[in-house]
């Protein structure tokens, strides 16, 4: 993994967005042929997850 790509990944995960390519790879490996979220939907899903108020919503620190 290049240095730049890793930095970008770190920055994205800091605000709760995991790697989209890793998601695609996971879907391809475990659910081949099934539909995947588009980049936009993936992003929206992650925003809702991070700031959602449902079970498992990440807590905040002081």
């Amino acid at each position: 993994m290049s240095w730049w790509r890793k930095a970008a990944q770190t920055a994205r995960l800091m605000v709760g967005v995991p790697d989209y390519d890793a998601y695609l790879a996971h879907r391809a490996a475990h659910h081949p042929g099934e539909p995947v979220l588009s980049r936009t939907d993936f992003h929206r899903d992650r925003i809702d997850r991070r700031y959602g108020t449902g079970k498992g919503a990440p807590p905040r620190c002081c």
Binding site: M1, K6, Q9, T10, L13, P18, D19, A22, Y23, L24, A25, H26, R27, D45, R46, R49, G56
Partner: peptide, 12 residues
């Protein structure tokens, strides 16, 4: 699941 549960590089 590629979303919540993702094995992630330790530095990231």
């Amino acid at each position: 699941d590629g979303l919540d549960f993702v094995p992630t590089d330790r530095n990231v």
